[in-house]
């Protein structure tokens, strides 16, 4: 199994869309638990070679203001790919939707209707969209990275 990391995918110059002053790039990695010689295990991110149900994915969104002016009120929305169940994010300010993107909030505060019509607390796999709203404008040349995790259903 190759553990080579394909960051160059993120760094591709093609991500600069001519019409957009802010460019957004999507990439995906597979997260694997690798047990090293001493029995110690660690998590590594690989370029996806073999992906099967149960594998953990990390979706990375890279944004960059390629213009000469700041961009304000920057909001990124990422619908969950169908075969992937949401597994969290370490972007504390991210919000999620469990109703197809109509409303967003912290997962712990959201509820969904159960099969028997009762409302229950939403779970990670109920998430339909992930959204990030940046408070501060992105300065010209500014950049950043957003990410979330999923598991192949």
């Amino acid at each position: 199994m190759r553990l080579i990391i394909a960051l160059f995918l993120i760094l591709s110059p093609a991500l600069a869309h001519a019409a957009d002053a802010v460019a957004l790039d999507s990439s995906v990695f597979v997260e694997r638990l690798v047990t090293a010689a001493g029995g110690k295990s660690r998590t590594v991110l690989e370029e996806p070679k073999i992906v099967t149900p149960g594998d953990r994915l990390v979706f990375v969104l890279q944004y960059r203001n390629t213009g000469s002016q700041p961009a304000k009120d920057f909001i990124v929305t990422n619908p969950m790919p169908g075969p992937v169940a949401y597994q969290g994010t370490n972007d504390a300010f991210a919000q999620v939707s469990v109703d197809g993107g109509r409303s967003f909030g912290a997962l712990a505060a959201l509820k969904v209707k159960d099969m028997d019509g009762q409302m229950r607390a939403a779970r990670a796999e109920d998430v339909t969209h992930v959204r990030w709203a940046l408070r501060d404008p992105i300065a010209a040349g500014g950049q950043g990275k957003l990410s979330f995790r999923g598991i192949v259903r």
């Binding site: 957009d20 802010v22 961009a71």
Partner: peptide, 20 residues
């Protein structure tokens, strides 16, 4: 996986961007 972004440019105009 595709993400979309919206923002306001310096002229106050709404703009959007779509990822690969």
């Amino acid at each position: 996986n595709t993400a979309t972004a919206s923002y306001t440019d310096s002229g106050g105009a709404p703009r959007t961007a779509t990822s690969n």
